[in-house]
Structure formats: structure tokens, C-alpha cells
Amino acid sequence: MNTPQPDNERTFIISVLTENKSGLLNAITIIFTRRKINIESINVSESEVVGVSRYTIVVKLTREKAEKLVKQIRKLIEVLGAFLYEEEDTHYQELALYKVPLEPFLNDSQNTIENLIRQHFARILMVEREYIIIEKTGRKSETQQLFEELKAFGVSEFVRSARISISKSKRRTERFLEELEELSARTSKKVEYQD
């Protein structure tokens, strides 16, 4: 028997491949609700395969709880696959938008805002008569840092997207779906066993 490693609560990424069916988002999220597990972020988009959606769900859990949760997600009929990743097994990104009044930019004699945008590798998405919109991609800590620094100029609106991530796994979705075709075709051997 291995000595058990401490199973601390930490960030996991659950990546779910599903058929594109209405109501499935609800079916997936109630699995979390029932267990009183908070979803840190959730993103749904079409995957590289037509008709297959990819959910990227971020949760803070112990591995044991996360594994049990993933098994419950797999039970949903239209779920093709659900995969559990530690944070470091993925490459991930988020997008943030900041609405800031135009006024400070017009009087930025020290280039403070310009330097801020350069340092954070952010960009100006749009300039309107009253405000500008700044866009930044990055991890949560990075988009949060820019938010903190922009506060001095008045951020009238701030939004951050759900995390999207790509796993380091070599698995190819197309190949995975082919395997599923075989697995799902398997029927019970009951008939052969009769007497």
C-alpha cells in the first residue's frame, strides 16, 4: 500500500466533450449544484469537431472529489468524454475588458497610462467620445493586476471571461470519437450465455 499523499483542495480543470444539445449545460451544472460545489468559471464552445461542444470548467476541489464529480458527468447520455486536469497539465488563458474614461488619456503628460498598457501587453480595443476600452489576455492574476492599476483612472466597467484551456495530452478528439464508436457498439453478451 502506498502512503496516502495529502489531497489538498486545489484548482482543477474539467474538460467535457459533448454532443451539441440544448439543456445539457443545465444537466452538467446541476451535478455541481447537488454537491454544493461552486463553479469558478465555465466556458462552452464548439470544438474542432463539427457538432461537438467543449466545456472548460474550473473548480477548486480535492482530487478525490474531483474524480467522483467527473465520473458523474460522464454518466450523462450526451457526454462524449470528461477529462480531469491539474492546472499545470494545461495551457490556459482568459480575456479581460476594461472601460476607462477618455479624459485621463487626453492629459497623460507623464505617459503613465501608455506605460501601463505597454507593461501589461494590453491593447486599446476601441476609442469612443467618452471612454476607451482596453483589452488584455492573460491569467487571472495578470488581468487583475491591470485592473488594480487602472483603478486610479476610474474603471467604469470590467469583465473577465471564463478560462479556456488546452491540455498537454496527446489525445486527438477525432481518434477519441472513433474509439467511442467501438465502445458504444458493444452490447451485452446475455444472449450468448443463455443455457
Binding site: 459533448t18 454532443e19 447520455i77 450526451e78 457526454v79 462524449l80 470519437l177 467511442l180 464508436e181 465502445l183 458504444s184 457498439a185 458493444r186 452490447t187 451485452s188 453478451k189
Partner: peptide, 12 residues
């Protein structure tokens, strides 16, 4: 219905 690709009822 004999098969649904997202559903494998009889694991080997």
C-alpha cells in the same frame, strides 16, 4: 435504437 455513440452501456 441499437447504439448511441456518447453512451457505452456495456463496458468490457
Amino acid at each position: 435504437c441499437e447504439k448511441i455513440r456518447s453512451y457505452a452501456p456495456y463496458p468490457k
